[in-house]
Amino acid sequence: MTEPTAQACVEVSASAERVYALVSDLPGMASAAEEFTGGTWLDGASGAAVGARFRGSNRRGWRRWSTTSTVTDAAPNRFAFEVKSFGLPVSRWQYDIEPGAGGCTLTESTWDRRPSWYLPITVLGTGVRDRVAQNQRNIEVTLERLKAAAES
């Protein structure tokens, strides 16, 4: 796999299990993430498992859009999913959790998977011209919120 297009990490004074429970929980992530506002498990899924799909709702200002994601990793040290919009690849999001003394390190990464011809369409839909820079800012905010939630 290529290098992520955006990535950051944070030290969390909470167990890896607690952090995994937060990043793999759709309502929990909706309260922490910058653009993700919620999701619904599809096809009878009720939680994070490899192959489970969910429809995610997103918002930036007055713009709203939805995506369909498929969970690719659901292990104690990693939660990841591939995102599609209108059947087209959009991104991969990944949360790596490394246990350590007194807590863990949480790394959030994303890979932009949009075809080049699709970029102008997503700019119109989301209002974001520089998705890589925006995702970097979003990840930093999200990690701080996840840290606060895990440590509370």
Rank of each mutant, 00 (worst) to 15 (best):
D96Q: 12
L106T: 06
G28F: 11
L22R: 06
V23P: 04
E17G: 14
A21G: 13
F54V: 07
V123A: 06
L26D: 04
L42Y: 08
P89T: 03
L124I: 12
F86Y: 09
F86P: 00
D25C: 12
F86D: 09
A150D: 10
G102D: 04
T142P: 01
A21V: 05
E144C: 01
A75S: 15
V19E: 12
R53D: 02
V123W: 15
T126M: 11
G61L: 11
P99I: 04
A16D: 12
R131L: 10
E35C: 01
R137L: 12
K84D: 02
E151R: 04
T105G: 00
A14K: 07
Y95V: 01
R131G: 00
I139T: 07
R60P: 00
G56D: 02
C9Q: 15
Q134N: 11
A33D: 13
G102S: 05
Q136S: 11
P99L: 08
G87F: 05
R64N: 12
E35I: 10
R92S: 09
R92M: 12
R55D: 04
A14Y: 10
V50C: 08
W93M: 05
A149L: 15
D73F: 02
V132R: 15
A45Q: 03
K147R: 15
L88G: 00
G61Q: 09
M1W: 06
G100N: 10
A149C: 00
A150Y: 11
C9F: 13
R64Y: 04
V141A: 14
L26M: 04
R59N: 03
V50P: 01
T110Y: 06
P120I: 06
A21W: 02
S116H: 02
R60S: 13
A30S: 14
M29C: 07
V90R: 01
R129A: 14
P27Y: 09
S152I: 01
G38S: 12
Q94M: 12
S152F: 02
W117E: 01
S109E: 08
R63W: 07
A21F: 03
